[in-house]
Design a protein around this nucleic acid. Structure first.
Length: 110
DNA sequence: CATATGACACTAT
DNA sequence: AATAGTGCCATAT
């Protein structure tokens, strides 16, 4: 059982491909720490493995960019380079990785 | 060991 | 729709 921070890096490097992003909250859930969204951010910050881990592919649940070690502008730049569309201040939904969630009728949401 | 902090999320205005 | 208030939780101090 790896520590939280380690799992974050592991998940990012192995499950978040170039051209896609995931929210802090969903990342937390994905590694089994539901509710620890803010902690994910803390982890990214305290362990600047810079380009080593694609921490620029983590955004807020409302689609907005969030912060970045080298500044939000840099984060946006990197994402664009990877082919992610930015609409105004938010990331295009098509590039956001979501958990397999369902609505009340048990139909998967897109 | 106890408190504070912050790359967040959710709800109610 | 946009903003403010409240809750969360792993780390840092």
């Amino acid at each position: 059982m790896k520590i939280f921070t380690q799992k974050c890096y592991d998940y990012l490097t192995n499950y978040v491909p170039k051209g896609f992003v995931i929210s802090y909250g969903d990342l937390a859930k994905s590694i089994g720490h539901k509710g620890a969204a803010q902690s994910v951010g803390t982890a990214m910050k305290t362990n600047p493995y810079a380009p080593k881990v694609p921490c620029h592919r983590v955004i807020k649940s409302d689609g907005s960019i969030g912060k970045y070690l080298y500044g939000q502008a840099e984060k946006i730049k990197l994402l664009k380079q990877e082919g992610v569309k930015i609409i105004g201040t938010k990331v295009d939904e098509k590039h956001i990785l979501k958990l397999h969630t369902f609505d009340k009728n048990n139909r998967s949401l897109k």
